[in-house]
């Protein structure tokens, strides 16, 4: 038996919105300590990894490990039934054929229930190597979103360069070439901060289209953390306060 109640249901709604353009069918792993999922996009360029700790739920109970196969597109449709102020409860029996989703608004006394049919998904789990990222950039999530969005109108690809002084996002396209450079900024206004932790400089290129999809999660977190290593995919990380973390992995563009 699995049951989890999230007081701030909007968070779950935002998570689903943040992954639905990247992955279609997903196995949700339920364990006594929390909820997680890992899934790749169909082209195997991007991977979504979500970890939610039981501590962030108002109520959490999972007797055993369970795998719930869910169509994210259908889950997103169901989530549309939720009001932004609703509490959300997820329920599934052992050997479940459906996931029961309950939306409750204690103020308006409105309750919505939906039994989402589960599906069997033959997905492979990837082992992501423990990596010590040589460059970690923490940047306001709204600002990073805006940079990616505007650069995408100029080029399909962005080159990210890090060094101890700045992180640089540069593009080169038919329109011309240019870059946005952000220096280390630990100003008093926390939201303006850009924190650079660079032990080794990195220069890699990425498809901006994917970054724009990841940035849908910027509503979940004030800051985006970019973890880079010259020989590894980029990690774009959004911490969800008191609940867990949503990470996206993106394979770099490489010379043919």
């Amino acid at each position: 038996m699995f049951e989890a109640k999230l007081t701030e249901g909007l968070i779950l709604k935002k998570i689903v919105e943040s992954i639905k353009d990247i992955v279609t069918d997903v196995n949700i792993d339920i364990s006594p300590s929390g909820i997680s999922l890992q899934a790749m996009d169909s082209s195997h360029v991007a991977l979504v990894s979500l970890n939610l700790s039981m501590d962030g739920f108002e109520h959490y109970r999972a007797d055993t490990n369970m795998v719930l196969g869910v169509s994210i597109a259908n889950l997103a449709k169901v989530m549309k039934l939720a009001d932004n102020n609703d509490q959300i409860t997820l329920q599934a029996d052992q050997e479940a054929t459906h996931l029961k989703i309950i939306f409750e608004n204690p103020k308006t006394e409105r309750t919505t229930e939906f039994n989402l049919n589960l599906i069997t998904i033959d997905s492979e789990h990837l082992a992501i190597p423990e990596t010590e990222y040589s460059s970690v950039v923490t940047i306001n999530s709204g600002e990073f979103s805006k940079i990616c969005k505007e650069l995408f109108s100029l080029s399909e690809t962005v080159q990210i360069t890090t060094n101890t002084d700045y992180v640089q996002f540069s593009v080169e396209g038919e329109v011309g070439s240019g870059q946005v450079r952000l220096g280390h900024n630990d100003s008093e206004k926390k939201e303006d901060q850009t924190i650079l932790e660079v032990s080794e400089s990195v220069q890699q290129q990425f498809a901006i289209r994917y970054l724009n999809m990841f940035n849908k999660a910027s509503t979940l977190s004030s800051f985006t953390r970019l973890c880079l290593h010259q020989e590894q995919p980029l990690v774009v990380e959004f911490k969800i306060d008191n609940l867990g973390v949503l990470k996206y992995f993106l394979a770099p563009k490489i010379s043919d």
């Binding site: 790749m40 082209s43 195997h44 360029v45 991007a46 991977l47 492979e124 789990h125 990837l126 082992a127 992501i128 190597p129 690809t157 290129q205 498809a207 590894q232 995919p233 992995f249 394979a251 770099p252 563009k253 490489i254 010379s255 043919d256």
Partner: peptide, 14 residues
């Protein structure tokens, strides 16, 4: 020219 690499080149199957 740059081509898009795959995550399979970096991560192994469990």
């Amino acid at each position: 020219a740059k081509g898009q690499s795959s995550l399979a080149a970096f991560f192994t199957k469990k």
